[in-house]
């Protein structure tokens, strides 16, 4: 049985790291959803130009690696703004804008999944476009989208480990610091794998259950 007492000794460091990872995930989901909704609204209510801009936005953020986005926001944005941003804020902004691109595509697909006939019927029933979206399309689309949102959130939880490159002490960064300091690489990294695995597995199982409930 390997000696795991050093993990107990560093428990609070690891726990704080995990908390930071989860907070970043929550912030990324909420911010990303807000940006995603905004992008979809731009698509719905502006013409060709708006669609073009959103297309370009989505294309750029889906083409470049998240690490590069984080570098942009950590190193370059303070130069543009003329004031410091800090690792925490820049990571949240990077995640928000990055996830926004993905969420807007999920939203778009979700809205498309509601058949066009529904829209026509609502309009024929005397609703205007906004009302039709609000009362007819969105409620149906959201049910279809929630599991996909949550799956995306699990992916984001894993991606938060990338804040490693800006020295934020998330779970993975705390793990590497402890691994290097105590020289116990095998045990430390194995434990970290187990923690991520169990969390993501549990979350995935939860999403699957939700999916089945909706399908009923």
């Amino acid at each position: 049985m390997p000696d795991l007492s050093f993990i107990a000794r560093n428990a609070s460091f690891l726990f704080d790291g995990l908390l930071l990872s989860l907070t970043l995930t929550a912030a990324g989901v909420i911010g990303g959803l807000a940006v995603g909704i905004a992008l979809v609204l731009v698509r719905l209510f502006t013409g060709v130009v708006g669609n073009c801009v959103v297309d370009a936005y989505v294309f750029v953020f889906r083409a470049i690696p998240l690490i590069l986005v984080i570098f942009w926001f950590y190193f370059m944005v303070p130069l543009i703004l003329g004031r410091p941003v800090g690792a925490w804020t820049s990571a949240i902004v990077a995640f928000t804008l990055f996830e926004g691109a993905y969420y807007s595509e999920i939203l778009r697909a979700g809205l498309k999944s509601v058949r066009a006939g529904q829209m026509h019927a609502a309009l024929a029933g005397g609703m205007n476009r906004a009302q039709a979206l609000r009362y007819v399309i969105f409620p149906q689309a959201i049910t279809a989208m929630i599991p996909i949102f949550l799956t995306q959130a699990i992916i984001l939880f894993q991606d938060t480990s990338l804040v490693f490159v800006v020295s934020l002490h998330d779970f993975l960064t705390a793990t590497t610091i402890i691994a290097n300091r105590d020289g116990r690489l095998v045990e430390t990294y194995a434990s970290a794998c187990l923690v991520y695995y169990l969390i993501c597995l549990a979350a995935t199982a939860g999403v699957d259950r939700l999916k089945r409930t909706f399908a009923r």
């Binding site: 894993q158 991606d159 480990s161 990338l162 490693f164 993975l172 793990t175 590497t176 990294y189 970290a192 794998c193 991520y196 695995y197 993501c200 597995l201 995935t204």
Partner: peptide, 9 residues
């Protein structure tokens, strides 16, 4: 279910 960065390490 394990982040790629951790897998790489």
């Amino acid at each position: 279910n394990i982040p790629l960065l951790l897998q790489m390490f």
